[in-house]
Design a protein around this nucleic acid. Structure first.
Lengths: 207, 207, 207, 207
DNA sequence: GATGAATGAGGATTCATTCAT
DNA sequence: CATGAATGAATCCTCATTCAT
């Protein structure tokens, strides 16, 4: 798990003892476990501490308050998910548009599935901390990557405002993937879904 | 305010006297006012009762618990919004696709704006009660209407699975409208947004 | 059901309409039904009124408060039980002691069984109203009856203080019957129980 | 005060620090004091906390809910009473039946008097929590002790089923003692009461 | 570094009872 | 006689956070 609670640890002795990192991780993981099994309403600091096997006092040594624990959880998972997705997308940068889009959607579905809880379920059962950490972040992970990609294919494109196009596609793709995974489409296979959605994007984008 | 909390109020009394309906409405409206000004976290039953000018006992005479008040609010507004949108769409049923889609998106933006708080802001600051009342319901209000519309234009269409196509378009349109209204697109006018989004849909849909 | 809520009805028109008596009974019976099925904690005036099919307003026409409803229930059942028991005991007044006691215990068990709920269960789950209406009353129903009976058999008796003897026997008999019915004695038949208990009494009483 | 709420407190913390035990005791004692002076109906958690000189939060640190406080009180007192009685009875094990019974009844009266409130008054003014802690437990404390005692005197006894005999005597003795202390017998001294009640038992038991 | 006892403001909910219609 | 809307004091309980040890 990535380093969290930075402000606190920054001004403390550099080598965050391994023990400390272990404690820190176990707190965040306990929070995740409780969130998954009992829901946000049951997430209390005392409960987290108990599951993590530390005292509340200790918990408050590592985190200034409850929200920061959840934020640490989300940040960590979103960071991982983004990194994973970005690295996979890089492998596709050389592919033509008609190959890139279906592949990208497949990867997105795959990442959403892997981090389903934090990315898809959690946002639904908790009041937003600030502005949609998870969705926002994961939503636009593709943006910068794709902007570069599209710029390389300018000649093939029929759209003029690339930024607007990316905005529209980002929203269309992510919301459809989320809905597909969350509500499902009884009669439709994943293959059909990917084909049709990427078809929509490619037709929109190309001449 | 329209009659609300009817089926649900099996546990609580249904308004039999005129006085009752007035009280009931004022409770729901107070909840909405508090939600708008102070946010979900400040929505307490005592506060609602106070603003509504009734006793806390009266509040519980009409609603079994706090959640049901919010649910009544959402249901009422979503019902109104849907009805409004549906009636406007009916006027467009005779139009060709290239006219229908931009018009529809404009209407959707307009309805979202009118019911902005309950439809767009509220879902972001409260934990979901059961299934996403607002989004889900507003998301698919267009579905049945549009399915009929599209069936009349089958010959012009390039898509085969109409249900899948509607699923994709519903998500693409609603999520883009919501994001457009919520986050905005600094450089883009509403007209451009509507053009581009409807362009995406029409290109996808037609031969 | 016997007339209850006397104070109220005394100064009202004499002929308590049948309708009124029906309403009154249905209130008391509703209370009993709720008590049996949901327990004392669930006995609310609104609930009673609802089950009885009358408004709370009406309920408060017949009873000054909730306790009086329960009291009416208990009084009615205890009155019936006592009357029933007394009439059965009268038939035994001519019998010798060795016949009287077993017979009396059998009758007591039978009456307790018939009015089990109000006489045995109810006292256990509700705070006492005044001093143990039910137990007290049923406990001493035998007293006066038996005092007369014993006086007729003075010559056979070995006890001197008849009142004390009756006190001891009353308690011994009623508590044993209640415990026998309530907790049971796995290995013991009712016949053995009656034999042994009356044996204890008879031996104590006679020379 | 003896350690209480130990097994039960799985949900709540067990006192690890000395401070904790003191707090715990003061909560239970406050509950007892309120119960004695104001009655069960006035026993509120806030009141208990106030009298105990702790915050309401602390109270809930030690007990999961109000009932458990009362249960802890009852359990503690019943445990003490039983232990006390048992130890006194052991001193009588060598005595003949005609000495044992009056002595035992005297001891029982004495213990009942010492713990009068929890053992005699409290059960009458509160709804039962689960199964009658107090009565049941105190009722049968004598059972095992006495069974052994009687087995040593088999040759003197006229009864065959010892278990049944003990059941009958337990109920007869405890109910009479409770009634004697609770309702009283105006004309009768304790000595006469004890004599007569033990007389009943001895006559029943011996040849 | 760690502990866990203590805090207490605050919130949801209940229910006997009244009274205007 | 009947209705049922309205009352509101009162109660139980939660939980993030602090701080003395």
């Amino acid at each position: 798990m990535a380093r969290v609670a930075k402000e606190k640890s920054a001004d403390r002795k550099r080598p965050l003892q391994e023990r400390a990192q272990v404690t820190l991780d176990s707190i965040v993981e306990s929070a995740e476990r409780i969130l998954q099994t009992k829901g946000y309403a049951s997430l209390t600091t005392n409960h987290i501490a108990e599951v993590a096997g530390v005292s509340i006092g200790t918990l408050y040594h590592y985190f200034p308050n409850k929200d920061m624990i959840v934020q640490a959880l989300i940040e960590d998972r979103v960071t991982r998910a983004s990194a994973q997705l970005r690295s996979r997308l890089l492998d596709l940068m050389g592919e033509p548009i008609a190959v890139m889009f279906p592949a990208m959607i497949r990867e997105l579905l795959s990442v959403y599935r892997e981090y389903e809880f934090v990315l898809l379920r959690l946002p639904n059962e908790m009041p937003r901390l600030e502005d949609q950490q998870s969705r926002l972040t994961t939503e636009h992970f593709t943006f910068s990557t794709n902007l570069n990609y599209l710029k390389q294919h300018t000649t093939e494109l029929s759209v003029e405002d690339l930024e607007l196009a990316l905005f529209l596609m980002d929203n269309a793709i992510t919301s459809n993937c989320i809905q597909f995974l969350t509500r499902g489409l009884p009669e439709t296979s994943e293959a059909s879904f990917v084909d049709e959605l990427s078809g929509m994007m490619v037709r929109y984008l190309t001449k």
